[in-house]
Design a protein around this nucleic acid. Sequence first.
DNA 1: AAGCAGCGGGAATGCGCTTTCCCGATTCAC
DNA 2: GTGAATCGGGAAAGCGCATTCCCGCTGCTT
Lengths: 363, 363
Amino acid sequence: MAASTLTEVARLAGVSPATASRVLNGSARTPGPDIAERVRKAADSLGYIPNAQAQGLAKSSSGLIGLIVHDIADPYFSAIARGVQTAARHQNKMVLLATTAGSPADERAAVAAFAARRADSIVIAGSRSTRTSDRQGNAELAAELDRYCRNGGRVGVVGHAVVGAESDEGYHVVEVPNEDLAAALARELAASHAGEFVIIAGPEGLLTSDDRVRGFQRGLADAGLPPADVLHTGFDRTGGYEAGLELTARISAPGGSRGAGPDAGYPRLCIFAVNDVMAIGATAALRSKGLRIPRDAAIAGFDDIETLRDFRPALSTVRLPLEEIGRLAVPVAGSGPTAAATVGVTGEVTLRRSTEPAGEPAT
Amino acid sequence: MAASTLTEVARLAGVSPATASRVLNGSARTPGPDIAERVRKAADSLGYIPNAQAQGLAKSSSGLIGLIVHDIADPYFSAIARGVQTAARHQNKMVLLATTAGSPADERAAVAAFAARRADSIVIAGSRSTRTSDRQGNAELAAELDRYCRNGGRVGVVGHAVVGAESDEGYHVVEVPNEDLAAALARELAASHAGEFVIIAGPEGLLTSDDRVRGFQRGLADAGLPPADVLHTGFDRTGGYEAGLELTARISAPGGSRGAGPDAGYPRLCIFAVNDVMAIGATAALRSKGLRIPRDAAIAGFDDIETLRDFRPALSTVRLPLEEIGRLAVPVAGSGPTAAATVGVTGEVTLRRSTEPAGEPAT
DNA sequence: AAGCAGCGGGAATGCGCTTTCCCGATTCAC
DNA sequence: GTGAATCGGGAAAGCGCATTCCCGCTGCTT
């Protein structure tokens, strides 16, 4: 027993399919109240559910929003996803999920799939990369997106414009001032840390990572400090952990630049991990070697993911309104082709215990 | 410039739409190699992307998997979502996301929306409830699901069968032995804790919560202990936090049943929160009042969400293979109407520092 | 050599719905 | 009271694709 169709409803109500369609969906023309009543009654006596595929085909629009993330179980992305979901609900749309682990090729495929489903708009969260190994992938992704836009699709990107994107139609980006915020963080840290600074960064070429690194270095320079060493590693917890292990050696080594160290009364090292999950990984690594934070090293992250709320030691970070970012990233439904090209959000440096000067009593 | 259609491709290739369709999609009949080549070339010179809506309409199947969760940003659900996503990818399908905050009415609406989109299958994660206030909602949800199944849909449910579900066609549940695992946890804890036991539970009527409570009590009974007090609260971090606050009073109160207490050398209280986020909330509450874990209270959760990996004190819990659960919950694509009704997974009691006997040196 | 199965391709139909177009019946203005 | 404008409803044409049916052809059997 297949689902009942509009035609069946119409027949049962004794009207034409056209009329039934008009009453059951908000058409411009509203049939008479008596007829409307009959149709509605017929509809729910049959348990009629409109076939969204057919509707989409006829109206060429699907009520779908495509969301592309690296990994839905990553707190950063799931917070954004929540925002996207909220916005979608306000627009009476559903969200289609694609996870790509950051591979441009997969992202291209996801865009194509969304296009095939005639998604009304696409949201791309997750950092862009300029690695040469991704060049071709990026180009293809950009091409796919352009085509999608030309066909009337709207796309919202979190963070950076897609590398090589041409179209400016229906393409908007939620800009996160990564560089400025990282600089601000660096300045604040520089004020209270005499020790050496080290940055745990993502792979070279990852835009978000690069921006934050650049900003942090600029902030240090502003404070009259030399640039920090940069360790490139994976953009996830594992990367942070590995870098953390590497740093433990440096921390435990006798002596060290600028004569800092646990016994000097302030942290030998101040570590900036370009995102929170990496900071968490690094913290775990240090802890596994018996080092304490902030006693033996200060550490700060970026994003302020929800996980941090209960993480000890409380991690200093830069708070980003992730959910709002998600909400803002979904293109507004009926917006004209010249929708706002860019919306900005702002963050906030949030200092917590992990970067307090050493020697304070633990809470 | 609208997206190009099969007909355009066919015309460019100088063949009929039928032939073009046959070569571009895996049809039973494969046209000659020369023709196929021509069509394929025409297709990608035009950047042809098949219209999934039209395909779906014609084939009446959509390549969509609907996923219903309470909150995608909750680590428990996002872990399951990851598993679902993995399974979907293996089936060459995409996942449609709906979040409902656990409201049966919203879940019904989500099922209807999925049905409208002709989703091939639906996965419902998130606990079922038997609260009387949800009675009608549950009934309607069950009815909606039954209709969906009768129309050929497949549904997979995590945890419990939907209350009141009739159909046994295309309906399968991933069963989690919540009760037994909770009992096992209780027995292990009983062996090392002399103090009083308290359970922080979700709202009464929430099946998952009820099962775990029942199991835990049974485990205590097995060990010859009296039943634990049960605090009912929200099934989320906030609920855990509030319950935790309430418990701090009890812990700090002078005296106490069975004469336990910090100075007695073992924890006064052993708290079992029915899920990890609640346990985290409770921990935060205790800590906010200056209490230490496990010194002043032992605490255990359930699920072993990924967040726990870096949570301190390391929380005892029951490990559930969440991602696998997600994978298993996705109905297999071509399975006959009499697909396996139930698949089981198993968990593992995982004792960590949060329930170690007090007095041990902190790590 | 005639007959038949088999194959490669095209014409046509339908999936379920929206939407234009059309037509008879009112209502309004003059 | 007649014309035009309006309203309420139905007929029909797609939306883009899959698929059934049909037809002309080749290659085989007897």
